[in-house]
Simulated assay, not measured.
Amino acid sequence: MSSLPFESDYIKTVNSFSELTTTLFEGKNNALCWQRNLDGDFEEIVSQLILENDITEVSAEDLEFLNLSENGNKARQIILNDMKLLTEFGALPSLNLLKCYERDDELGFISTDVYSWHVDRSPIGTDTYLCTYHGASSDILPNDEAVQKIVVPEIREALKKLHVGAENEFETFLVDHFFDLHYQEKPHAKSINLGKHSLWRLAVDHPDQAVLPSIHRAPKENQGEYRLMLIC
């Protein structure tokens, strides 16, 4: 398989699910991509699913219930196999039909929703796996092209005004409210779109992690189009 055009110190490609799950992150590398060109009609699946609220979790049974064409069935079998691979690996995959995520931008100067550049954190050793089958796909940002929002002077000062408590509790306040997980892109930063069909593994911030966590964000949805993505 040829390398992705954006393969870099941060992003590496692999050739199988086994390689995706066993390759160690090292150095600057904190994103792995199992690049795939999938054959199937994922739009047909989306057209038959029923959205409840803004996000609906779709089960394997929901997929099996759909009456699909040959190409739609190909897409269904691909998704079911991805769910099976991840489950057997020990993950808890969630297939989501998405209109949009909830926004959290009430403060104006900082947000803590998934549309903001952010990293994932876990108390245990884990990674984020995701694949977009239909609709807009997520973006990632090289770590050296972003800065933590809480160190931006004007944002930090605004957060200090928001904080109620002792000065030595301020850093704990930032962590408790997830402000420390969010980033601001530097001038001229170049984000990378994850595209459709490829299965990605992104490094998460946890005590045993050997590399920096991957900075990513949810995309702005295409008008009138739902997203179908697998994540765990």
Rank of each mutant, 00 (worst) to 15 (best):
M1F: 08
E7I: 00
E7L: 01
D9T: 15
I11W: 00
S16L: 06
S18H: 13
T21V: 09
L24K: 06
L32G: 00
C33T: 04
R36E: 10
L38M: 09
L38H: 03
D39Y: 12
G40I: 01
L51Y: 12
D54M: 03
I55D: 05
S59N: 12
L66E: 06
S69G: 12
I78K: 05
M83K: 05
L85E: 12
R103F: 07
D104F: 08
D105W: 11
E106R: 07
I110Q: 03
V114M: 09
S116I: 04
H118E: 08
D120R: 11
D120A: 08
G125N: 08
T126V: 15
T128V: 14
T128P: 02
L130T: 00
G135A: 05
G135M: 01
S137V: 00
L141Y: 00
D144G: 07
V147A: 10
I150Y: 07
V151E: 11
V152T: 08
R156K: 14
A158V: 01
L162R: 11
L162Q: 06
A166E: 15
E171N: 12
H177Q: 13
H177V: 07
D180C: 10
D180L: 09
D180V: 14
H182G: 08
H182R: 06
Q184H: 14
H188K: 15
A189W: 04
G195D: 01
K196Q: 07
H197K: 08
W200V: 10
L202K: 03
L202H: 01
L202S: 07
D205L: 14
I215A: 03
E221W: 05
Q223S: 13
Q223N: 11
E225N: 08
Y226K: 14
L228S: 07
L230R: 14
I231G: 10
